[in-house]
Design a protein around this nucleic acid. Structure first.
Lengths: 205, 205
DNA sequence: GATTTAATTCATCAGTTGATGAATTGTTCG
DNA sequence: CGAACAATTCATCAACTGATGAATTAAATC
């Protein structure tokens, strides 16, 4: 019995070892559960089975780790690809289906982390607003008729319904909505989105 | 020049002084801006012009302070009073108006703190779900026809649209929705809520 | 096989966190 | 007045935070 515990040897690990990936994965999971401030680098390191200093070896700091944990998931141009080629009058179903699909993909952890992290503080909420109105909504609203002001308002309403549904189904997990079939949800909320997108709206006073 | 700075004297302050109230007010504001973990007791104390130890004198700890900062705002029975006496077929407008009114009242800070604090972590999100499905939704859905399962689903959809709109208008502050008149917003989303509340929904597959 | 490069561990820093206990002083009540 | 009580301040704790620099070791390159 020379050594009960296989004490960790120093130096470079054999093989690729992928510590960087493990760190990112653990960071995504923890940021998703506890938000930005609620997640410590030491805990990320522990769950990634890695020395805390490795995080600073691969990433500049907590901010960069958060940014990179959260960056990949939502490439709007991929998720919403082809949407602008559909006529606005029948775009809602495809849109809802794409968003639900994304939230049921492996990207879910990252998306949750992003939502938790950004809604959690005022400064970060502003970032979310920028992303929504500059990178996501223009793609969704491409080709919709009306004055820019009106189209922007329609976009806000679409976002409200979409985000609200995602929040209830995937974040708060209200039943029975959380367990309903994806296509059922599409049928339930797509008509609303279709109306906001291109239907009749009351005139402002 | 015996004393340039009026150094704080010890002991009990003259008058009521209301330190407890100042602490609560500062806590509400800070929790609303930076969430639970992002807010330190020391900063609360500083902004309340109070010694950090006072917080522990009045409150058991950070958790209790958070709970009390956030408890008062939303007494569902007051906000939704009288709603269940309206027929479900014309309940939506009053509901939307009540919710928007609440979010434009002084309670806004507390509500923001509550949202930020609860969405920020998984454990606290569960609390939000409990409150929604046990204390708020039953009041909104009282007297709606249908099987319990169906009514619950309708409630989820109402909540989704309502929370989504609140998030866009008051938290993320998307324009032009954030600056639109309250009654305009009522007219825009009440029809959707009315449909979820008591309108035709597609059958589940 | 020698040199370079990258991955890993360790020890440690200064700052902050939530929390506690004692000391001090003003108010209130008998 | 004197005793009880509550508000306030101070000093301090152990734990944790993000971060840094140096030492060690394996792999990659030549």
């Amino acid at each position: 019995m020379s050594s009960g515990q296989p004490e960790p040897r120093r130096g470079r690990r054999p093989g690729g070892a992928g510590s960087r990936g493990q760190i990112l994965a653990a960071a995504r999971r923890l940021f998703a559960e506890h938000g930005f401030e609620g997640t410590s680098l030491r805990r990320v390191a522990r769950e990634a089975h890695v020395d805390p200093a490795m995080i600073h070896h691969f990433f500049a700091g907590k901010d960069e780790l958060f940014a990179l944990s959260v960056e990949l998931p939502a490439d709007p141009s991929t998720v919403l690809a082809g949407l602008d080629r559909r006529d606005p009058s029948e775009r809602a179903e495809a849109l809802v289906r794409a968003v639900l699909g994304l939230w049921e993909s492996p990207a879910q952890h990252s998306l949750l982390a992003f939502l938790r992290g950004t809604i959690g503080s005022k400064a970060k909420t502003a970032i979310l607003g920028e992303i929504a109105s500059q990178r996501i909504l223009p793609r969704i609203m491409a080709g919709v008729a009306g004055t820019p002001e009106e189209v922007a308002l329609r976009g806000n309403l679409v976002a409200a319904q979409l985000v609200g549904a995602v929040l209830m189904r995937y974040v708060i997990r209200l039943e029975p909505l959380a367990s309903a079939g994806r296509e059922d949800v599409v049928r339930l909320i797509a008509p609303t989105i279709q109306r906001y997108l291109a239907g009749d709206l009351p005139e402002p006073s």
